[in-house]
């Protein structure tokens, strides 16, 4: 703190490495295009002009899992799709987070039958659940900001 008081006018800031790393992770988190069903349309609406996701650093959605950090599971996961989902999650490099968007991904939603996996947390570990059927784009943005808060509280050794 003493250093900052002396060098304050020169535009120098001191902080911890953790904070810088977490700050950079939250401000440039690239989501992976994983829209499955109806929630995907609301995710696309959140990305489009009215509710802009680019202002949170998510300028584009990467289709390739190797180049993305965040998997937003948007939509219902059927039993045929579940192994594909797990494989894509495994292909993403660390650090990676998962938002389960919508009711079907969080808990099976309206459907309770043989074909839908009741909750995507049976397949991948989830960080934030966003409720709604489908959640409004503002709800998704709230979920993303909650994830940012969670990331800001992470320690470096979580992903080391």
């Amino acid at each position: 703190m003493g250093v900052e008081q002396k060098l304050g006018n020169l535009g120098v800031v001191t902080t911890s490495l953790e904070k810088v790393v977490n700050w950079s992770r939250t401000n440039a988190m690239w989501p992976m295009l994983f829209g499955l069903a109806c929630c995907a349309i609301e995710m696309m609406a959140a990305q489009a002009a009215d509710y802009d996701l680019s202002r949170f650093g998510m300028e584009l959605m990467r289709a390739s899992p190797r180049q993305s950090d965040l998997m937003i599971v948007a939509g219902r996961v059927s039993r045929k799709m579940a192994p594909v989902l797990r494989r894509l999650y495994d292909q993403m490099p660390d650090p990676k987070w998962v938002i389960s968007m919508g009711d079907c991904a969080s808990c099976g939603g309206v459907f309770n039958n043989y074909a839908i996996v009741p909750g995507v947390d049976e397949v991948v570990p989830v960080d934030v659940y966003v409720a709604g059927c489908p959640p409004r784009p503002e709800a998704l943005i709230h979920g993303i900001l909650t994830l940012h808060e969670k990331v800001r509280g992470e320690k470096l050794r979580d992903w080391a």
């Binding site: 939509g75 219902r76 059927s78 045929k80 799709m81 459907f111 309770n112 039958n113």
Partner: peptide, 25 residues
């Protein structure tokens, strides 16, 4: 078949009005 939701079978276990919710999706 990657999005097969079993809507037709699920609707058989709900009343006519309750099943309207499933047709939306």
């Amino acid at each position: 078949g990657y999005l097969h939701t079993g809507i037709e079978k699920n609707m058989e276990s709900k009343t006519y009005t309750q099943a309207i919710v499933m047709t939306d999706r």
